[in-house]
Amino acid sequence: KKIKIKIKVYNPETKEVLELEIEVSEEEAEELAKKLAEELEKKGYKIEEVEI
């Protein structure tokens, strides 16, 4: 079964909002969402919402 992940991120420095969407297997979904959120935060983005 495929799971659709939508991530909306906001960069306070540039006032930019990015929306990302990807489909992955159920097993990958939670781990991938967690890794993406961590990487984006390292780059200065503030995570507003992660929906699985």
Rank of each mutant, 00 (worst) to 15 (best):
K1T: 07
K1A: 08
K2F: 04
K2L: 15
K2M: 13
K2C: 10
I3Y: 09
I3E: 02
K4E: 03
K4F: 11
K4R: 09
I5E: 00
I5A: 02
I5Y: 02
I5M: 03
I5D: 00
I5K: 01
K6C: 05
K6T: 04
K6I: 05
K6F: 10
K6R: 14
I7A: 03
I7W: 03
I7V: 04
K8M: 02
K8Y: 02
K8T: 12
K8D: 01
K8R: 13
K8H: 03
V9M: 14
V9R: 00
V9G: 15
V9P: 01
V9N: 01
V9K: 00
Y10V: 12
Y10W: 08
N11P: 05
N11K: 11
P12W: 06
P12I: 06
P12C: 09
P12D: 05
P12S: 05
P12M: 10
E13N: 09
E13W: 09
E13S: 14
E13F: 14
E13Q: 06
E13M: 12
T14Y: 08
T14P: 02
T14D: 07
T14V: 06
T14N: 12
T14E: 03
K15L: 06
K15P: 02
K15G: 14
K15E: 07
K15F: 13
K15A: 07
E16P: 02
E16D: 08
V17R: 13
V17Y: 13
V17C: 10
V17M: 10
L18V: 03
L18F: 15
L18P: 00
L18C: 12
L18G: 04
L18R: 06
L18E: 03
L18Y: 06
E19P: 03
E19Y: 15
E19Q: 11
E19V: 14
E19S: 12
L20Y: 14
L20R: 02
L20S: 02
L20D: 01
L20H: 04
L20C: 09
L20I: 15
E21P: 01
E21H: 12
E21N: 12
E21M: 12
E21A: 12
I22V: 14
I22N: 07
I22T: 06
I22R: 10
I22M: 12
E23G: 09
E23V: 14
E23C: 12
E23I: 07
E23P: 10
V24K: 03
V24N: 03
V24I: 04
V24E: 13
V24H: 05
S25K: 08
S25F: 08
S25E: 12
S25P: 15
S25Y: 14
S25I: 13
S25H: 13
E26S: 11
E26A: 11
E26V: 05
E26M: 08
E26C: 09
E27P: 14
E27T: 13
E28H: 15
E28G: 15
E28Y: 09
A29Q: 03
A29T: 05
A29R: 03
A29G: 06
A29I: 05
E30I: 05
E30C: 15
E30Q: 07
E30S: 10
E30G: 11
E30A: 10
E31A: 11
E31I: 07
E31D: 04
E31K: 07
E31G: 15
E31R: 08
E31C: 06
E31H: 07
L32N: 03
L32V: 15
A33F: 09
A33P: 03
A33Y: 08
A33E: 02
A33H: 03
K34G: 04
K34H: 07
K34F: 05
K34D: 05
K35F: 05
K35T: 08
K35I: 04
K35A: 05
L36S: 01
L36A: 02
A37F: 14
A37E: 04
A37L: 12
A37P: 02
A37Q: 12
A37N: 02
A37G: 02
A37I: 15
E38Y: 11
E38I: 10
E38L: 07
E38F: 07
E38W: 07
E39R: 02
E39M: 08
E39C: 10
E39Y: 10
E39W: 06
E39I: 10
E39F: 10
L40C: 03
L40N: 00
L40T: 00
L40G: 00
L40H: 01
E41T: 05
E41W: 04
E41Y: 04
K42E: 04
K42S: 05
K42W: 02
K42M: 02
K43P: 04
K43V: 03
K43E: 09
K43R: 08
G44W: 01
G44C: 03
G44T: 00
G44H: 01
G44I: 00
G44V: 00
G44K: 01
Y45P: 09
Y45F: 14
Y45H: 13
Y45N: 15
K46M: 11
K46Q: 14
K46H: 13
I47G: 00
I47F: 01
I47T: 02
I47Q: 01
I47M: 01
I47Y: 00
I47R: 00
E48H: 07
E48Q: 08
E48P: 01
E48D: 03
E48W: 10
E48K: 05
E49L: 13
E49S: 14
E49T: 15
E49C: 14
E49Q: 10
V50R: 00
V50Y: 04
V50S: 01
V50F: 05
V50Q: 01
E51C: 14
E51P: 01
E51N: 13
E51V: 15
E51Y: 14
E51A: 09
I52K: 01
I52S: 01
I52F: 09
